[in-house]
Design a protein around this nucleic acid. Structure first.
Length: 961
RNA sequence: GCCCGGGUGGUGGAAUGGUAUACACGGAGGACUUAAAAUCCUCUGGUCGCAAGACCUUGUGGGUUCGAGUCCCACCCCGGGCACCA
């Protein structure tokens, strides 16, 4: 008997696989294709980490299983090799990024091979290879041709010490990632990609793909689609020709366009707010005669400009703003004049940069209105449905008006609670308003009648109205009661004796604020009391329109649609997603293939001149003016214009990292094509990617970016599908021992090479798949590694117990169940449970004197995707001349999943008291009879007659006494 | 605040509404050994009990059900994402 030695067998099989070329995808049309993909790595100097192993092993399992299932599998690998670390390293050492990158790639390649990944090494791509980035540049030109790439002045993050523009990812807590200096804003011209044009489709088409819900949710959240309307608010101010020629012909009224998702609340719009950057504000400042407080307005705008973004959007920041005095807007619904303010809580780049403020129904507007004493007008009344007497669909609806009354003690801080024994309600006081009666008078009357207290100091409205809906059974009517809520302060304790009936109906008691909150049992009353205590709040929920003229009584979508119609608005969808800043002032990226000609302006580099290759430079430091180091190389920058032959300069900005990774999976289909970025046939054959695994951290960057590129490519006929990835999964993070992040500075990084050295690649693979649910973050645990190793050794030892005879039926059932469970779990990412199922079976087999060849071969095949080296080794040593990759994945037999005998739990009143062995032929009655005869059951029944006996064959018996 | 996850032994974690704690690690005891490692066997949620056994237990509190970790309601805590997006 040989002992298991991964050091010997692992390199051996890796060599065999490579020699046989078994993992190379062929364009073999006879087999169905399967494209398995894992996000390609950035080849850093630190080498592979355990997280890579997790993702690549998972996809390797899928790839290997698919091959055995008869698919033509593409499981490629490449390098996302542009990026900052190589460039920073170059700045420090002067070593060219190209050289360090090459070295790192070699190391990665070696590591991947030592892990036994069944990758197709013939299709490697490297984003920094000019043969590759030629096509990245070519694709960029397509964006340019289709007006999806443009230049714009943008605020960028600027480090004054390093004199460099920073990407958002390079700014940590408002400071430069490298030197810790506070980052400034600078306006710089940047290349942009118009991803916003695809916002709607990027959102909607998520319905077409099989992505985890959390990924979809996160992308949707990021895209931030919201439906609403744009509405014009006319100003009371008329342009004249001198003041502004482009705002319309002489005498036309100026208007502010606002975006709102709540057009239904238009009657409650009591003022407008513009972003300080809103173009009309600039205009107004230039109109000397418009603003009465121009100085104040300018001062405010300047104060906002100097604020950092973080400060401006900080949580809990108190609202600031200034009124534009001398100009009013007209609410198109009410026709009333309303003030116009500017405030930095309105963002310039969302919607129209202007809002109609509805303080009664928006928390931010409420806060602002409260601070600046602006009017608050409620136009949506929440509707409370009584649960004890719910409205009946067939009963007639009647409208009533009522009051709900909060009563405060004349001297103490106490409130009166009404307890109604008849309904078992603890609540505030209520009453109906009679025809022509003032609500405050009605409330006063009710207080005197129901409580006996006579002298009232004050009666005021609580700033909240609502509607109660219930069914009045004695008249069979549905009541819709419009409630006004009123606060009454008693003057003194003078009481008048109440009638017996009133005393019976209303048991009254004085309670403190906190006690009231606890005791009030009706949700509508509780809401009234809480709003009273807070002195009003924004009511953001649904409700029925009130105080809204012809819209009164409308609700939901109908209310919105009618409101838009009423004020001549247009339906509009807005997105949070912003266009993508696509240029970096860096060396180590794809040069943007554009030249700037003195005569012709911006000229795209003609296709025949691609690629625009990166020149070697001596200094990688950025220049003083924040341009890329490329700008310092005159020989590279100065070129002839390809259109007119005149003097021109190259664009010196480079593309961000996300460029090469946005389309690499397409290149895998045809990696060596010099004539096209990939051929039609190859793309048709392989795309879309069937299963794409990657990290959660790429959900709103790489994953969204590449979906955007792909959709554009589809639109111009470059690719055959609208979505690049059919199925997406994401592996959870691997944390260091103790549940903290692995980091070099903490020195807690686990090096996979060391684990392979000590335990073998198969053990590492099984361990990482077994350690916990695949999509969940999980902490590394050195001690637990021996478990998978012991498991592999148990399998190893089983090979010496093979006897060539068929196992009995029960053992076959074990086998078929294992096949079913393992096969199914792999598809559902249940790698941990798939492995535990194999462990259970191995533990069972180990106990027998011998295993059959059939059992052992099945085990080997099921194990092969997880631990491919040891699987091939034992497969070979039991006499097979071919490798497992060419074997077929085992099938299970539906007929062999249920055992003849089952052990059921017998419960008495839901508690397990005994077990009972039953056979497949037993009927419910048999089982019932036998269960009742069991001595344990007799003991617990103690002579009682069972009320009910529930028998679920094969599962359980429950005897209810 | 909003949107996703998640709370189960000493630890990682299993459980189509049907014997909660599978599998693995760790721990205890034993076998083998001069000894140790490796390996193998037994035990291992808690409380009470000599034992037989009883009771309790899946973040908390209610509910539905013959039966709830699983379904419903309310709440607490942890992780991730977004965050003045009108």
């Amino acid at each position: 008997m040989n002992s298991y030695d991964p050091k010997e067998i692992e390199p051996k099989w890796q060599k065999v696989w490579e020699e046989q070329g078994i993992h190379h995808a062929k364009e073999d049309v006879k087999k169905p294709k399967y494209y398995a993909l894992m996000e390609f790595p950035y080849p850093s100097g630190d080498g592979l980490h355990t997280g890579h192993v997790r993702g690549y092993t998972a996809m390797d399992i899928i790839a290997r299983k698919r091959r055995m299932e008869g698919y033509n599998v593409l499981y490629p690998i490449g390098w996302d090799a542009f990026g900052l670390p190589a460039e920073n390293y170059a700045i420090k050492t002067g070593i060219q990024p190209a050289i360090t990158t090459k070295k790192n790639i070699e190391n990665y390649r070696k590591q991947f091979k030592s892990l036994g990944m069944s990758l197709d090494w013939d299709r490697e791509v490297d984003t920094t290879d000019p043969k590759y980035y030629k096509w990245t540049q070519w694709l960029f030109l397509k964006f340019l041709e289709n007006d999806l790439a443009y230049k714009a002045k943008m605020n960028i993050n600027w480090c004054p010490k390093d004199k460099i523009g920073l990407a958002n990812e390079e700014v940590v807590d408002g400071k430069c990632e490298r030197c810790g200096t506070q980052v400034e804003k600078r306006v710089k011209e940047q290349w942009m990609l118009r991803i916003t044009k695809y916002a709607d489709r990027l959102d909607r088409d998520l319905d077409l793909v099989d992505f985890p819900e959390r990924v979809k949710a996160q992308q949707r959240n990021w895209i931030g689609r919201s439906e609403g309307a744009e509405i014009d608010f006319l100003l009371d101010f008329t342009y004249d020709k001198k003041a502004n020629a482009n705002r319309g012909p002489n005498g036309e009224k100026a208007a502010i366009k606002v975006f709102t998702t709540r057009p239904d609340t238009i009657f409650g719009a009591t003022y407008l707010v513009l972003a300080p950057e809103h173009p009309w504000v600039t205009l107004a400042i230039e109109q000397h005669e418009v603003l009465e407080n121009k100085k104040e307005v300018i001062a405010y705008i300047n104060s906002v400009k100097n604020k950092e973004e973080i400060e401006r959007t900080a949580e809990g920041k108190e609202k600031t703003g200034v009124e534009l005095k001398g100009v009013k807007a007209i609410n198109p619904a009410t026709g009333e004049e309303i003030p116009i303010w500017i405030a930095d809580y309105v963002l310039p780049n969302y919607g129209t940069g202007a809002i109609m403020a509805v303080p009664a129904h928006d928390e931010r507007d409420f806060e602002f209105a409260a601070k600046f004493k602006l009017p608050i007008k409620q136009v949506v009344a929440p509707v409370f449905y009584d649960k004890t007497n719910p409205v009946k669909p067939d009963a007639e609806n009647t409208i009533r008006h009522g009051v709900i009354i909060i009563i405060k003690h004349w001297s103490e801080d106490k409130y009166l609670l009404d307890y109604s024994p008849k309904f078992n309600w603890k609540c505030l006081f209520t009453g109906g308003i009679e025809e022509g009666e003032d609500p405050l008078e009605a409330a006063t009357r009710e207080v005197r009648e129901e409580t006996g207290y006579q002298n009232i100091k004050s009666a005021v409205y609580v700033p909240f109205e609502h509607i109660d809906k219930f069914h009045a059974p004695h008249k069979n009517l549905n009541r819709h009661v419009f409630q006004k809520n009123i606060f009454i302060q008693l003057a003194d304790g003078e009481e008048k004796e109440r009638s017996d009936e009133e005393k019976d109906l209303h048991h009254i008691s004085w309670l403190s604020e906190a006690e009231m909150k606890k005791e009030i049992s009706l949700p509508n009353h509780l809401e009234v009391f809480e709003i009273f205590l807070q002195n009003g709040k924004a009511i953001t929920g649904e409700g029925s329109l009130i105080n809204s003229g012809t819209l009164d009584g409308l609700i939901g979508i109908e209310a919105k649609d009618k409101a838009i119609e009423l004020v001549n608005g247009t339906k509009k969808t807005s997105f949070k997603l912003r266009d993508w800043i696509f240029s970096r002032q860096r060396y180590w990226g794809e040069p943007i293939p554009v030249i700037h000609c003195e005569k012709c302006g911006m000229v795209p580099v003609p296709e025949k001149n691609l690629p625009v290759t990166l020149p070697e430079v001596a200094m990688y430091e950025p220049t003083d003016n924040g341009e890329s180091p490329l700008s310092a190389i005159d020989s590279w920058v100065n070129v002839e214009c390809s259109t007119c032959g005149g003097k021109a300069k190259r664009e010196t900005d480079t593309m961000p990292n996300w460029a090469g990774s946005s389309w690499y999976f397409l290149r895998y289909t045809d990696p060596n094509n010099d004539a096209e970025f990939a051929s039609k046939e190859r793309l048709n054959h392989w795309t879309p990617v069937d299963w794409y695994n990657g990290g959660m951290e790429h959900t709103t960057l790489h994953l969204l970016y590449s979906r955007f590129w792909h959709k554009f490519f589809f639109d111009i006929g470059l690719v055959p599908t609208t979505e690049p990835y059919q199925k997406r999964t994401s592996h959870g993070l691997i944390l260091a021992e103790g549940g903290v992040k692995m980091s070099k500075s903490k020195g807690n990084v686990v090096n996979p090479d060391k684990v392979v050295e000590q335990f073998g690649a198969d053990t590492l693979r099984v361990y990482e798949m077994f350690m916990g649910p695949f999509e969940q973050a999980i902490a590394w645990n050195e001690e637990s590694l021996v478990g998978p190793r012991r498991f592999i050794e148990k399998v190893w030892k089983l090979q010496y117990k093979i006897e060539d005879k068929d196992p009995d039926v029960d053992r076959q059932i074990d086998m078929h169940r294992t096949i079913k469970k393992v096969s199914g779990d792999i598809e559902l990412l249940g790698f941990n449970t798939a492995i535990s199922t194999l462990m259970i079976w191995v533990n069972t087999l180990e106990k027998y004197d011998s295993v059959s060849k059939m059992e052992f071969e099945t085990l080997t095949k099921l194990l092969a995707p997880f631990a491919p080296h040891v699987a091939d080794e034992v497969w070979y040593s039991i006499g097979h001349g071919h490798i497992l990759a060419t074997e077929t994945w085992p099938d299970f037999d539906e007929q062999k999943l249920e055992k003849r005998e089952a052990i059921l739990a017998v419960q008495v009143n839901g508690k397990v008291r005994a077990t009972l062995t039953t056979s497949a032929d037993d009927t419910e009655d048999d089982v019932k009879t036998r269960a009742l005869e069991l001595p344990e059951v007799q003991k617990w029944l103690n002579g009682a007659v069972p009320k009910k006996v529930i028998v679920v064959l094969g599962k359980i018996v429950n005897i209810v006494v």
